[in-house]
């Protein structure tokens, strides 16, 4: 794994991106704005499932009408995040919050798929009503927590000095 990160780090295009004055601010700013589009819409979908807001909007309306926009934001987020990683792979290799963010994103993705292929199949039965099944509410709560965790760990990546002690003891960067 480390050698792959080092290999990317030494690529001329990675170095060029890293040394560009404008690339980092542009990529990071676009990353934050696209996060707002993606996470902002997903948060209200999750809160609809939990029953915290938009209770008069049919549940099935949200994936149909909002997900294309949320996925656009997610796509831009993935591209800019990928380029940020590509430009400074060794900065992130031993960063606890980077790996925590990747893990949380993977679990959030799994939660989405599980919800889509299991709970959401019966949406017609609870689309209009206020009584949302417990499994859907649970998926909403879990999703809210996971995406909040992604946002938090993403911000914490800047704090290389605040890694947990046990992580530092693993000496991954050495």
């Amino acid at each position: 794994m480390r050698s792959a990160f080092e290999w990317v780090d030494a690529l001329p295009s990675s170095i060029a991106l890293r040394e560009s004055l404008n690339a980092y601010p542009t990529l990071l700013t676009t990353h934050v704005v696209s996060m707002c589009l993606f996470a902002g819409l997903i948060a209200f979908w999750d809160m609809r499932l939990v029953g915290l807001t938009l209770r008069k909007v049919p549940v099935s309306n949200i994936p149909t009408r909002l997900f294309p926009w949320a996925l656009t934001g997610y796509g831009i987020n993935l591209i800019t995040g990928g380029l940020l990683l590509y430009s400074q792979p060794m900065r992130y290799y031993d960063n606890f919050y980077f790996w925590a963010k990747m893990a949380l994103m993977a679990v959030a993705g799994f939660n989405m798929l599980w919800f889509h292929y299991a709970t959401y199949k019966s949406v017609q039965a609870w689309d209009q009503g206020r009584e949302i099944p417990m499994s859907a509410r649970l998926a909403g709560v879990v999703s809210l927590a996971l995406w909040a965790g992604v946002v938090v760990t993403g911000r914490m990546m800047a704090y290389a000095g605040l890694m947990p002690e046990w992580w530092n003891n693993l000496n991954i960067g050495a």
Partner: peptide
């Protein structure tokens, strides 16, 4: 971190209505 989480909530609340104003999103 709390600022960023609040930003996401604010962005979502604004966007859902703005998209509706644009004739997109939750048009029903």
């Amino acid at each position: 971190c709390m600022h960023l989480v609040a930003l996401v909530a604010f962005a979502g609340a604004v966007l859902v209505v703005d998209m509706r104003l644009l004739g997109r999103g939750l048009i029903k």
